[in-house]
Simulated assay, not measured.
Amino acid sequence: MVKEISLAEVRGLIGTKTGLSDWILVDQAMIDAFAHATNDHQFIHTDPARATTESSFGGTIAHGFLTLSLLSTMNYNALPKIREQTMGINYGFDKVRFMAPVKSGTRIRGHFVLADARFRGASMLMTTYEVSIEIENEKKPALTANWITIIQFDPKDRPEET
């Protein structure tokens, strides 16, 4: 994948796979830290013995929101840097779907397809990525979503639209 592009090149990537992240291990320590940070200590996340005997998952699973939040690190790892970008803003998600559980001890990675890129005002580019998070050795993704971000840049760097 391309590691750096210019602002003028972004719109030419619409419809293409623009990033594939490295694998991330989701282990029990990560799940427990997320449970602590969010005060969500449901046993299917934090009690391996009970989750093995009292759930259909065969052990603990990551919180769906933990999986979703890992898109941030996957983004930095996978998507090309835009030379003129001064700041990136997480604008939100459309159609987030948690498709399959992420079991403790498994690895996940993000797939990014640039679905849309539109200039807004003099110094912003709104991008929409179709994202999915693959679970290693599983057919079904952990999640799918449309992720909307805003790229800010100096107005003098805005390319001419054709």
Results as ranks from 00 to 15, higher is better:
Lys3Glu: 15
Glu4Asp: 05
Ala8Asn: 09
Glu9Val: 10
Arg11Lys: 14
Ile14Ser: 14
Gly15Phe: 02
Thr18Glu: 13
Thr18Val: 15
Gly19Asp: 04
Gly19Cys: 07
Asp27Gln: 10
Asp27Asn: 09
Asp27Leu: 06
Ala29Val: 09
Met30Leu: 10
Met30Arg: 13
Ile31Tyr: 01
Ile31Trp: 00
Ile31Asp: 00
Ile31Met: 04
Asp32Lys: 05
Phe34His: 03
Phe34Cys: 08
Phe34Leu: 10
Gln42Pro: 02
Gln42Ile: 13
Ile44Thr: 15
Ile44Ser: 13
His45Ile: 02
Pro48Gln: 09
Arg50Tyr: 07
Arg50Ala: 13
Thr52Pro: 05
Glu54Gln: 14
Ser56Ala: 11
Thr60Met: 10
His63Val: 12
Phe65Gln: 12
Thr67Leu: 00
Leu71Tyr: 02
Leu71Lys: 06
Thr73Leu: 11
Asn75Ile: 11
Asn75Met: 13
Glu84Arg: 06
Gly88Leu: 09
Ile89Trp: 08
Asn90Arg: 06
Gly92Lys: 09
Phe93Val: 10
Asp94Pro: 06
Met99Thr: 15
Val102Phe: 07
Lys103Thr: 05
Ser104Gln: 08
Ser104Trp: 01
Ser104Ile: 06
Gly105Phe: 04
Gly105Thr: 04
Gly105Ala: 05
Gly105Ile: 02
Thr106Lys: 12
Thr106Trp: 03
Arg107Ala: 00
Ile108Ser: 00
Gly110Thr: 08
Leu114Pro: 12
Ala115His: 02
Asp116Arg: 06
Ala117His: 03
Phe119His: 07
Gly121Ile: 07
Gly121Ser: 09
Ser123Leu: 01
Met124Ser: 00
Met126Asn: 05
Met126Gln: 07
Thr127Glu: 03
Ser132Lys: 09
Ile133Pro: 00
Ile133Gln: 01
Glu138His: 12
Lys139Arg: 14
Pro141Cys: 08
Pro141Lys: 02
Pro141His: 04
Pro141Arg: 01
Thr144Asp: 08
Thr144Ile: 14
Asn146Asp: 14
Asn146Arg: 14
Trp147Asn: 10
Ile150Ser: 11
Ile150Leu: 12
Phe153Leu: 01
Asp154Val: 04
Lys156Arg: 13
Asp157Tyr: 02
Glu160Leu: 09
Glu160Met: 11
Glu161Ala: 09
Thr162Cys: 12
